[in-house]
């Protein structure tokens, strides 16, 4: 069963195409790992899938009634600013905004979900902290918690373990595996950790072969 379908997809910046005429399907229940050397276009592809970058040509179809609000996304580099005042809790809760909430309050169930995700990434003790004052790895874990909150059917992860200590990255792999096996989450993960990718993934995509 196809969940995401790229047809003749072309992505790029300025006057340069990074991904050209790509046909690819991601199936529901996949644990897809994307590998490839620096600058070969993995992040660009994921940004395309996430709808952050508009395709130059071609299309990305969301199949099986998949909605954007059911997608969780962990960007590689956070575009957030150094002096942005925001608490960890505010950031994680903002993951629910795709579900078109109009109310100025978050309900109990959403708050509970946010707490669970903070606990999974072991950041619940940071809840009231100021995001800009966290360490790089702590920030990464908070943003992962935000991605987990938003993800219901599909999780797009761009180098989720980069910057994490060994224990945290092991924990991260366990969380992702658990989501994949028990909650039937489809995973698309960009990684340089080929060993772990081969261990966990059900499919691999080598981007070096796609972009020449």
């Amino acid at each position: 069963m196809t969940l995401l379908k790229c047809r003749n997809l072309t992505l790029g910046y300025g006057n340069k195409n990074v991904v050209e005429n790509l046909d690819y399907e991601i199936h529901s229940g996949d644990y897809l790992c994307i590998i490839g050397k620096n600058g070969c276009g993995k992040t660009t592809f994921l940004r395309g899938l996430a709808g952050v970058l508009r395709p130059r040509a071609g299309k990305i179809d969301l199949c099986e009634n998949l909605k954007r609000k059911e997608i969780g996304y962990l960007p590689q580099m956070t575009t957030t600013q150094k002096d942005f005042p925001a608490s960890v809790e505010e950031i994680v809760l903002s993951a629910f905004q795709g579900k078109s909430l109009l109310l100025p309050f978050y309900g109990k169930s959403l708050r509970k979900r946010a707490s669970e995700c903070l606990e999974l990434t072991r950041t619940e003790n940071l809840r009231k902290e100021c995001f800009r004052e966290l360490s790089g790895g702590q920030k990464q874990r908070v943003l992962l918690a935000r991605a987990l909150c938003a993800a219901e059917r599909l999780l797009l992860l761009d180098e989720p373990v980069t910057g994490l200590d060994p224990e945290s990255s092991q924990n991260m792999y366990n969380i992702i595996k658990n989501l994949h096996e028990n909650r039937n989450m489809t995973i698309v993960m960009v990684t340089h950790d080929v060993e772990a990718a081969q261990k966990h993934a059900t499919r691999m995509l080598n981007f070096n072969e796609i972009v020449q």
Binding site: R47, A50, T79, S94, G98, K99, P104, Y106
Partner: peptide
């Protein structure tokens, strides 16, 4: 502003993530 306070926060903090999750 009050109705869309959280949306405004989400977009101000991380426009790309907001777009990816359907805002």
């Amino acid at each position: 502003f009050i109705l869309f306070y959280h949306k405004i926060f989400a977009i101000t903090f991380d426009e790309n993530f907001a777009r990816a999750t359907g805002v």
